[in-house]
Design a protein around this nucleic acid. Structure first.
Lengths: 228, 228
DNA sequence: CGATAAATTGATAACAATCAATACTGGTGG
DNA sequence: CCACCAGTATTGATTGTTATCAATTTATCG
């Protein structure tokens, strides 16, 4: 873990300011918010948060990807969410249990902003702008987590992979290419699959015009993929 | 659907006032909140909310159970959450998309309170107590939905059923008995199972001391069930 | 270029969905 | 109070899907 200096490069600062959290804060609230923050750098595989640990902070990812997961007693793990740059995690602890309900692990070297829970909670009390940011973030997370449940329950592995590809395709039809922003094993966990199942899903999508080479995914016809 | 009168019997009123939503509101906020409310009665199988419909309200269940679910294109459905008396649903629309991301259907005859989204949103702007209630509710829903993802991904059908039983057992050890508050088919959907799979899970739990007769579930040794 | 991690592929087994048939239940009206 | 009916639940047989294990192949990074 790094120190608590607030030294951000331009890109990280831009990511932070675009979050619903910091975006649109009034001058005074912004200053207060900044005082509740610190910056941390973590290495690949570092644990940021442990399940059962008393929650004292939530985090915003500036750079890299963070894996939220739970463990079963026999040691298997299941991803609950992947936090990308601009995402926050742990903000659900502001008004709930005091113990984290998941582990958070850096999937690669990450830059994070750490927010002190109590301070932000106090700030939200005075500043509706901060409350609004918290509610917006919580709402989006809730909806995307509900989407996750529905996807797991309704769709097979190839369908979930197709959905993922489509969600990142910039175009509505015709050919497209995207680049995975992380390792395939991370995508597998995100979709609730074993890495082998992701591999097989990709190869079963070949007949639908999906070609995978490394992190590059090419789609012959986006519209055709949507029919899956 | 019923009319909008605010006529509640004592039990319904007690349920409403115990929600994090109404609980602890100051006199003035409470009055305002009441003005944003109306009461509805719906029959079994009535749709309360349709996916894709423009969201103008969220709801609090006073009586009965409501099933939130999504449909796939080929007509299969998957439950996302079961809302019990005291639960709200749709409050995630306060600060997010304007279209409901799920269907909501009464599993039986239900009494609901309908809250106008825009009015509550305006109220939250002025009253931190209301914001706090929204954040508390959103946080709890987010955490329970993350639990759902983790349960689906980590546990088999018998384990999920055992978890459910344990979560409703009043005691920590020894024998216990609980009564299902709804039909088994609803429990099946809640656990992400087909009704047949729930049946089979129950019978596979017999050797662990679980007996099911109608809606009554008896457990010989709660501690033993926990080992599953 | 070599060491190490990641990804793929094949074989197998576990799990749960589906379909079909039967049993059970609760509520209704006679 | 009983018999009936419709909705609910159980059981069996089968199929589809994905996890798991094992063996390669391919990438990645020093």
């Amino acid at each position: 873990m790094g120190n608590g200096d607030i030294k951000l490069n331009n890109r990280d600062r831009a990511v932070l300011m675009k979050t619903p959290f910091m975006h649109g804060l009034t001058g005074n609230s912004l200053v207060k918010m900044l005082s509740a923050m610190s910056v941390e750098t973590v290495s690949a595989r570092d644990l940021i948060v442990r399940e059962g640990q008393r929650a004292e902070a939530f985090y915003c990812v500036l750079n890299g990807y963070v894996r939220l997961y739970r463990l079963s007693r026999d040691g298997r793990d299941a991803d609950i969410r992947i936090s990308a740059p601009g995402d926050t995690f742990g903000e659900c602890m502001l008004y709930a249990d005091r113990k984290y309900p998941f582990f958070a692990q850096a999937a690669e070297t990450c830059t994070l902003v750490r927010f002190d829970l109590q301070t932000v909670k106090d700030l939200a009390e005075e500043d509706p702008g901060i409350s609004r940011a918290v509610m917006t973030t919580l709402s989006r997370h809730l909806i995307s987590t509900m989407d996750c449940v529905a996807n797991d329950r309704l769709f097979t592995a190839p369908q979930r992979v197709a959905n993922y590809i489509l969600s990142r395709c910039p175009v509505d039809g015709g050919p497209a290419a995207i680049r995975l922003p992380f390792q395939k094993s991370l995508l597998a966990g995100m979709l609730g699959l074993a890495p082998e199942a992701l591999s097989r899903a990709f190869s079963s999508l070949r007949k639908t015009g999906v070609t995978v080479r490394g992190r590059i995914i090419q789609v012959v016809d986006v519209q055709a993929l949507r029919e899956i």
